[in-house]
């Protein structure tokens, strides 16, 4: 189960710099913490976040175990043409979440 909040403009003028803000529910378990019985809790983090604009990767982020739970990622890109932004979070234990946004550029 995963939950994502994305805030991005639905439309923009060509050449505008647009900001995309994302928030995802994830424990980001570092793998260095001991549980109640003293054994290590296995690592469970998001390893990678990418954003593809009409199939072209415009932003990529490698996440580390030091990043807190529920990571907030904000980045900007230039609105070039009408199309879709595909946001992908992938990580440990087969974690994969995809969100597609459409943007109208005039």
């Amino acid at each position: 189960m995963s939950s994502v909040l994305v805030n991005a403009p639905r439309s923009a003028r060509r050449g505008d710099v647009i900001e995309i803000k994302t928030l995802i529910l994830h424990p980001m378990e570092s793998g260095f913490r001991a549980g109640a019985n003293g054994t290590l809790i296995p690592r469970d983090i998001i390893e990678r976040f990418t954003c593809a604009y009409n199939g072209v990767e415009v932003f990529r982020l490698a996440l580390s175990p030091a990043i807190a739970a529920n990571p907030f990622i904000a980045f900007s890109t230039v609105a070039t043409e009408t199309g879709t932004l595909v946001l992908r979070w992938t990580g440990d234990n087969g974690f994969a979440v995809e969100e597609t946004l459409s943007i109208a550029v005039e």
């Binding site: 805030n7 803000k21 529910l25």
Partner: peptide, 14 residues
Amino acid sequence: DDDSANPAMLWVRD
């Protein structure tokens, strides 16, 4: 103040 940065909004949506 920013609802798109406030992580509590993940719970609110649920």
